[in-house]
Structure formats: structure tokens, C-alpha cells
């Protein structure tokens, strides 16, 4: 491991809240200029990890090195090099968009002329120029997220922490934010992105760590993670009606296949051999279940996530629905 090329090195980091182990002995590195995804369901420990790395929370144990600075005992040591976009849009409701950006820039010691120039530039880049003089409290959710991201980057941080940046906003705003994140990445900013949107992580990140119940269960590039499914065959079946015995019957009849069931009347079939659809459909018809669609699918990161974590992707979808998130 070349430490000079690493912007974040986390070793054996742990944090408990009373009896709950929120983060359990995790270790990972983020390379300089990398877009690193931290993927896991709600309560997995993503935000706690960010809070510890940025100095908002004190680890029980472990070391944190940010941009070459050991922050384990002095969490403020690297704060001038980082930008943080929290999961909540936490700017000041009484200040306008422009005032909020100028204030955030001033916290990093930027002079008046410089911060006003940067604020105007970012408001334009984020398509918020027209709302610059409106109070932040009156912004829509999407506008709030955009301005919060602008506030996180106004001082041009070397390392940017984005905590669930697209959660709870509409599809168009989420798409616009992803483009902005890609642009920042292209400009060389190291980005640590937490999300529970598997597709988002797949689209944006160079490398991904899966975190479940405070533990990192896998860390790799998207390509390498998908390699686990190379040579495997997948089939997705959508059906009408549900028979309680369906899982048991299919597993018994097709022992060479593995099935994973969702609650939305679909199930997936996985096999190392090409899957013969006809007997499967006949079996379902015998059970009184109408098949409305059966299609071969290319394995996605979601499949990898389900296989590695043992969590159904449904758990992540529920998170999305609860928060009214965009796909």
C-alpha cells in the first residue's frame, strides 16, 4: 500500500453507542482522486463512519489518517482540507443562498472578495442564481441539497464527504446532482460517498465498500465485484398471484438452481449452467401461478450485494421508499 497516494486511511475503527456496536473494527483506504462508495442499508454505520473521520464523533478505537495527517488524537488537524455534505441540508434557514455560501466560505478563512466571487460562480454552476437572494428556508428539497453541496465545496476541499447526497429528492434533481458529483471527481477531488442506492454507487464509484451492521463485508472496484458473477446465468420471473409453497416447491423440483424471492411478485433464478425456462414455467402453472414475464438478466451490483451481504435488495428498496427517494 502506497500511503502517499492515499487521502483516507482508516484502520480498525470502532464505535459503540451503549450496547449497540455502530461501527465494528473497519479498515479501508481511499486513494487520492478516487470516488469511493460506502454502500449499506440505513443504520449500517455509514454516517457514524463519516462523523468519526471528519471529527464530529470520537472513535472508541482505531486510527484515521486524512490527507497524510493523523487525526486519531486531533480531529481538527485536517479539517481545513475536507468538505462535508451531511445527510441533512443543514444550512441557515434565515440566511439567503448567497449569504449561506459566503458564510461557509468565511469559516475556512476566505476573504470577502474571494468568497463572494466563488459563491456567485457556484450559484450559477448549480443553477441557483435566481434563488441567490431568497432565504434558504424557502428552498425546495432539491435546491437545498444543491446549495448544501455547494457549501461543502466552496473552499475547494481536497477530500469531500458526501453523505446520502440524493436521498429524498426528485429524479431530475438527483440526476443533476450525480452529474455534479462526476464533474467534481473529474476535477480531481477525492470523494467519499455514502449511499444506500445500489445503482447510484454502481454508476458513480471507482471502488465500493459494502457495510452491514457496522462491518465492511467487501471492498473492491465495481468490475471486480461483478466478476463474482462471471459465468453465471440469471433469470427474472414475474408472476401473478402467490402460492405459499412456491419457494419450497421450486427448490425441491430444481435443486441445481438457486432462487431468491422478492415481495413484489418476482423472483430470481441463479445457475452456473444455462437455465431451461420451459420446465420452470410448467411447474409454476401446475401451482396455479401465471407467469407474466420471464427474462434473462445480466447480473448487477445489486445481485453482488445480495450475495455478499445476505441482505435482500428489498431491504434497501424499503429504505428508498421510506425516504421518498429517487432512483
Amino acid at each position: 500500500m502506497d500511503k502517499d497516494n492515499m487521502d483516507i486511511i482508516v484502520s480498525n475503527l470502532s464505535k459503540s453507542f451503549q450496547a449497540v456496536k455502530a461501527v465494528d473494527d473497519i479498515s479501508f483506504e481511499v486513494k487520492t482522486g478516487e470516488l469511493f462508495g460506502f454502500l449499506g442499508p440505513n443504520g449500517a454505520g455509514k454516517t457514524t463512519t463519516i462523523r468519526m473521520i471528519t471529527g464530529l464523533s470520537k472513535p472508541d478505537s482505531g486510527t484515521i489518517i486524512t490527507a497524510g495527517i493523523d487525526c486519531s488524537h486531533n480531529p481538527k488537524a485536517a479539517q481545513h482540507l475536507i468538505g462535508v455534505v451531511p445527510d441533512e441540508s443543514n444550512l441557515y434557514p434565515e440566511l439567503t443562498g448567497f449569504q449561506n455560501l459566503c458564510f461557509c466560505a468565511s469559516l475556512y478563512g476566505m476573504g470577502k472578495a474571494e468568497r463572494e466571487q466563488e459563491a456567485r460562480k457556484l450559484l450559477q454552476a448549480f443553477d441557483l442564481s435566481k434563488a441567490a437572494d431568497r432565504k434558504f428556508g424557502g428552498y425546495s428539497k432539491g435546491m437545498k441539497r444543491k446549495l448544501t453541496i455547494a457549501a461543502g465545496i466552496i473552499h475547494k476541499p481536497r477530500v469531500l464527504f458526501l453523505d446520502e447526497p440524493t436521498t429524498g429528492i426528485d429524479v431530475a434533481s438527483a440526476r443533476a446532482l450525480r452529474i455534479m458529483i462526476k464533474d467534481l471527481h473529474k476535477q480531481g477531488t477525492t470523494i467519499f460517498l455514502t449511499t444506500h442506492y445500489i445503482e447510484e454507487a454502481e454508476r458513480l464509484c471507482d471502488r465500493i465498500a459494502f457495510i452491514v451492521s457496522g462491518k465492511i463485508v467487501a471492498t473492491d472496484t465495481v468490475q471486480n465485484l461483478l466478476k463474482h458473477h462471471e459465468g453465471k446465468h440469471f433469470l427474472q420471473v414475474t408472476h401473478q398471484g402467490r402460492n405459499a409453497d412456491i419457494a419450497e416447491r421450486l427448490s425441491a423440483s430444481f435443486a441445481h438452481l438457486s432462487f431468491s424471492f422478492s415481495k413484489d411478485n418476482t423472483f430470481r433464478v441463479e445457475s452456473s449452467e444455462p437455465i431451461n425456462i420451459t420446465p420452470l414455467i410448467m411447474c409454476l402453472e401446475e401451482l396455479g401461478i401465471d407467469v407474466s414475464e420471464a427474462k434473462r438478466i445480466t447480473p448487477s451490483l445489486e445481485d453482488v450485494f445480495v450475495r455478499i451481504t445476505g441482505l435482500e435488495a428489498d431491504a434497501m428498496r424499503k429504505d428508498k421508499e421510506k425516504q421518498g427517494g429517487a432512483k
Partner: peptide, 14 residues
Amino acid sequence: KNSSFDRLLLAPIS
């Protein structure tokens, strides 16, 4: 309460 104080805690000042 509205987490805006976190911005101040993240500022690189003592």
C-alpha cells in the same frame, strides 16, 4: 437541533 452547529464544529478553528 437543526444540525447547523455541526458546520461550526467542522470549521478549522480551535
